[in-house]
C-alpha cells in the first residue's frame, strides 16, 4: 500500500555530470517496493515547482529501511532534490504503480534501458537473482557520459551491454541495435522476454521489434504525471488489449507505468482508426 510521509535524505552520491543516486529513509518503500514501481517525491513545501516528480525505485534496503533513486538534475524539481544535504527532508508517496512481471523459467529476461531509464533495472536484476535467474541488461545513451549508472551493476555482478549513438562506449548505435545483435546470435537459447524503460521513441522501437519477432515485451512509460494515484488523469495513455474493440485512456500511475508493449497505442500507430474517428 502506498504510504505518504516526510522522508530524510540519508545519502547523496554524485555520479558524473547531472546524475545522482539519492537514498531516503522510508520503511514501506524499502519493504514493498518492486522493480518498475515508483515514488512521487519533492524537496520541501515551496510552491516552486508546484508538483512532486515520479522516479522509478532504483534499489531497496529493507533492513536499513531505505530506498534509493537515480536522478538526473535537469529541471527545477530534480535540481532541488539533488541539492538536498543528508538529514534534510523531502515529501514522498510510494511505492506506486504496477511492477514488471517476472519471466517464466523458460524465458531469457532481456532488460533494455535508454538513458536514465536504467533506473528500474538494478532492482529488477536483484529480483531475478533472488529467483535464481540472471538478467542481461542493455544500457544505451547518446554518449558515454549518459551511461553513468554502471558501477552499481558491476558491484552487483550484473553484466551490462553498453551502446552509444556516437560509439564512445560499447556498441556503436542504438541500444535496440545491440539487442538485435544478441537476438540474432540466438540469445541464450531460451525464448527472449523483453523489458524496456527509456524515452518513448526507444520504447516504440522495442515494441516494433518485439512484434516483428513475436516476443513478449513490457515497457515502462513516463508521461507527465500530476498525482501518482489516479486522480488527476494527467498521465493517461491509450491502451488497447486484444479483446477490446477500442482503446481506453489508462492512468500510467495506477494501471502502469508498466504496460504490455503490444497494448500501447503508439503515436501514429493507432489500430482502430474508425473507432478513433467515432469519438
Amino acid at each position: 500500500m502506498p504510504t505518504n510521509r516526510d522522508v530524510l535524505l540519508v545519502e547523496r552520491q554524485a555520479l558524473g555530470g547531472p546524475y545522482f543516486v539519492l537514498s531516503f529513509g522510508h520503511p514501506q518503500v524499502a519493504r514493498e517496493g518492486r522493480a518498475g514501481q515508483f515514488v512521487m517525491i519533492k524537496a520541501g513545501l515551496s510552491a516552486e515547482p508546484p508538483l512532486r516528480r515520479p522516479f522509478s525505485i532504483l534499489a531497496v534496503d529493507p533492513e536499513r529501511e531505505r530506498f534509493s533513486l537515480f536522478v538526473k538534475a535537469i529541471g527545477p524539481g530534480t535540481r532541488a532534490l539533488c541539492a538536498l544535504e543528508p538529514g534534510q527532508p523531502a515529501q514522498c508517496l510510494g511505492p506506486l504503480g504496477r511492477p514488471f512481471t517476472a519471466p517464466a523459467d523458460d524465458e531469457e529476461p532481456l532488460l533494455v534501458a535508454g538513458g536514465y531509464g536504467i533506473a528500474p533495472f538494478l532492482l529488477m536484476s536483484r529480483e531475478l537473482r533472488a529467483r535464481g535467474a540472471t538478467a542481461r541488461v542493455f544500457y544505451g545513451g547518446r554518449t558515454a557520459a549518459e551511461l553513468q549508472l554502471r558501477e552499481p551493476f558491476a558491484e552487483a555482478g550484473v553484466p551490462l551491454e553498453l551502446a552509444t549513438d556516437d560509439g564512445s562506449l560499447g556498441f556503436h548505435g542504438r541500444v535496440t541495435g545491440a539487442l538485435e545483435a544478441h537476438l540474432d546470435r540466438g540469445g541464450d537459447g531460451r525464448r527472449p522476454r523483453l523489458y524496456a524503460c527509456g524515452p518513448d521513441p526507444m520504447l516504440h522501437a522495442v515494441a516494433r521489434l518485439a512484434q516483428r519477432r513475436g516476443l513478449r515485451a513490457e515497457v515502462s512509460l513516463d508521461p507527465w504525471m500530476g498525482c501518482g494515484v489516479g486522480t488527476c488523469l494527467g498521465c493517461v495513455v491509450k491502451i488497447q488489449a486484444p479483446e477490446q474493440e477500442r482503446w481506453k485512456y489508462r492512468c500510467a500511475c495506477t494501471e502502469g507505468p508498466v504496460f504490455d508493449a503490444a497494448h500501447v497505442l503508439w503515436p501514429g500507430e493507432e489500430r482502430s482508426a474508425a473507432a478513433e474517428a467515432g469519438r
Binding site: 510552491a47 516552486e48 515547482p49 508546484p50 508538483l51 508521461p223 507527465w224 500530476g226 488527476c232 488523469l233 494527467g234 498521465c235 493517461v236 495513455v237
Partner: peptide, 12 residues
C-alpha cells in the same frame, strides 16, 4: 488528448 498538464509559475 494528451498532454493534459503543464506546470506554470506556482500553478498548474
Amino acid at each position: 488528448p494528451t498532454p493534459r498538464l503543464a506546470e506554470t509559475p506556482s500553478g498548474l
